[in-house]
Amino acid sequence: MLLLALDTATPAVTVALHDGSRVLAESRQVDARRHGELLLPAVDAVLAQAGRKLDAVSDIVVGVGPGPYTGLRVGLVTAATFGSVLGVPVHGLCSLDGIAHASGLEEPFVVATDARRKEVYWARYDNARTRVTEPAVDRPADIADQMAGVPAVGAGALLYDEVFTGVRREGPEHQSAGALASLAAEMLAAGEEFLPDRPLYLRRPDAQVPANYKVVTPK
C-alpha cells in the first residue's frame, strides 16, 4: 500500500506519502493564496524525498473540505486527475477529520477552520477518531453558547477565541496531509467507507454576475 494524500482546504498546501504503517514524507506550506502554484511541486518533492514514483501509488486520499472554494478545488481536481491516469481509487475525507486526528484528543472537542466572510467551518468530535456532527458553516457568534469552554482546535478556533473559549493553542492550526494519510490508512485497514471525492462547499455559489464579467481584453 502506498497512499498519496493531499489537502488544499485550509491555508495549508499539504502532501504526504504513507506506506500503510507510517508517513514516509510530508510537505506543509501555509500560503492561502498560492495553492495552485505550490501543490504540484510539493507532490514532486514528497515523492523525491521518499524515493518513490507516482506510478507506485495505490490509493489517493484527498481532503474534500469544507474550505474556501478556490483553493479547495486545486486539491480535488489534482486528486481526481491522478486517480484517472493511475487507475487507482480516490478516497475523500472531511478535511476537519484530518485536523481532529492530528489533535490526538481523547475527550469531546470541536474543530473549527476559517471560512472567511467572518464565518467558521466546524464539526464536533467525541475523540480524535470520531466525528459526531456533519460539518457546518456558521458565524461564530451564532454558535457561541454551544462552544463556550469546549476544547477546540484549528485556525477558526484560534481566530475567534472569544467564542471558542476552550481553544487549545498547542493544537493543530492547519491541515497536515500526514495526519490525513494516517487516518486513511487506519480506515482502509478497518475496511471503513470514505466520502466521494467531491467538494463540501456547504454554501451556495454567490449568484451574482460581476459588473464587468469576462473582461479579459489585453491592456
Partner: peptide
C-alpha cells in the same frame, strides 16, 4: 490566462497533474 481566476485554476491544476502523471 487571461480569464476568470477561479475557473482558470481548475484547468491549470488538472493540466499539471495530468502532465506530471
Amino acid at each position: 490566462g487571461p480569464g476568470l481566476a477561479g475557473a482558470l485554476l481548475v484547468g491549470v491544476s488538472a493540466a499539471k497533474a495530468y502532465a506530471y502523471a
